[in-house]
């Protein structure tokens, strides 16, 4: 097991290094550098060149990369081009909202999808299974932003249960405020994950060892909890990690629609202003987080069902 953990950790480190190269080159090699973004209309080409020299943009790409990577390793993500604030501060101010949104969603989605998926699989082709399958299939087909618009129109504008945007909000964690964005995030992730849990459980329920355990007369609960659940959980945990990706996309859209001052809003703003250091910093933090989730998922799966071929 330790050998597997070490290899998996090495892979994660390699991924992080490769990731930083990808992020840096994607953002740094784009036409129109920071000096052109910062220049005002009155500047002569010589002044732009001087600014470029001052920002260090005339040096070769790999020197800049090493310098940037070194600073990132020291926890310094640079300064925003548009506001001049440290990127660290921008991330620190915006990450709270995003963490609350994603956290609440994950806390709700993990147990709910497990219960619904297993209930659906145990009564395969029964009435409950059909209802759950139909509803999740339908919900999975509706894009996040369509769902968000409909929810806003119905619950915020017509019924007035909840504010339509987060503009001018100071206290972030009130239930009325969180209800709509979390509901939007929940609908899609819950339906996707429930379908995966159901499919995984159905496969395990038909597996030879479960049939044998039943034949031996083991109590239904023992079969479900000791034999079905750990094996069915492996693909579900992997899917939960992949859901992180889905969730992040959802958070991006939900933050844009509800005007939530989170990481995604900061990222979109930075992209629009071509604020390269901020985009690099935010991307690195978000992508590193995604890497961490995948790493945790793989390690959890290794604990649940020890085997080595998961790495491949």
């Amino acid at each position: 097991m330790t050998k597997y953990v070490l290899r998996r950790l090495a892979l994660a480190v390699g991924q992080l290094v490769a990731l930083s190269i990808v992020v840096f080159s994607l953002t740094a090699m784009l036409p129109g550098d920071a000096a052109e973004v910062r220049q005002s209309e009155h500047m002569t080409p010589e002044q732009v060149a001087a600014l470029r020299n001052q920002l260090g943009l005339d040096r070769p790409l790999w020197t800049r990369f090493l310098e940037w990577a070194g600073a990132v390793l020291h926890g310094d993500l640079g300064q925003s081009l548009s506001s001049g604030l440290p990127v660290n501060q921008i991330i620190g101010e915006s990450i709270g909202c995003t963490a609350v949104l994603a956290g609440v969603t994950v806390l709700l989605v993990a147990p709910l999808s497990t219960v619904l998926g297993i209930a659906s699989a145990v009564g395969e082709n029964g009435r409950l299974d059909r209802v759950i399958t139909a509803v999740t299939l339908g919900l999975a087909a509706i894009p996040d932003f369509v769902l968000a618009l409909v929810f806003v129109a119905v619950f915020a504008l017509q019924l007035g249960w909840s504010p339509a945007t987060w503009v001018g909000v100071t206290d972030l964690c009130t239930p009325e405020l969180l209800a709509l964005p979390v509901a939007v995030l929940l609908c899609r992730s819950l339906s996707l994950l429930t379908r995966q849990v159901r499919a995984g459980t159905v496969t395990v329920l038909h597996a030879g060892y479960v049939v044998q355990a039943r034949r031996l007369g083991l109590p239904r609960r023992t079969v479900l909890l000791r034999h079905v659940l750990p094996n069915a959980a492996v693909p579900a945990v992997q899917d939960l990690a992949r859901l992180g990706d889905n969730l992040l996309g959802g958070v991006l859209l939900v933050e844009a629609i509800f005007a939530i001052p989170g990481v995604a809003t900061a990222l979109i703003t930075a992209v629009q202003q071509r604020d390269v250091p901020t985009v690099q910093g935010l991307t690195m933090v978000l992508a590193a987080f995604a890497l961490l989730i995948h790493l945790l998922a793989d390690l959890i799966c290794d604990r649940l069902v020890p085997r080595t071929e998961l790495l491949r």
């Binding site: 990731l19 990808v22 996309g249 992209v271 995604a290 995948h294």
Partner: peptide, 22 residues
């Protein structure tokens, strides 16, 4: 193996980073 690096990247993040240029 090189593709493994791309695997965990959040997709909408990639799209927004690509969209930044020009």
């Amino acid at each position: 193996r090189p593709l493994d690096v791309l695997l965990p990247l959040p997709s909408l993040l990639v799209v927004s980073v690509v969209a930044i240029g020009g």
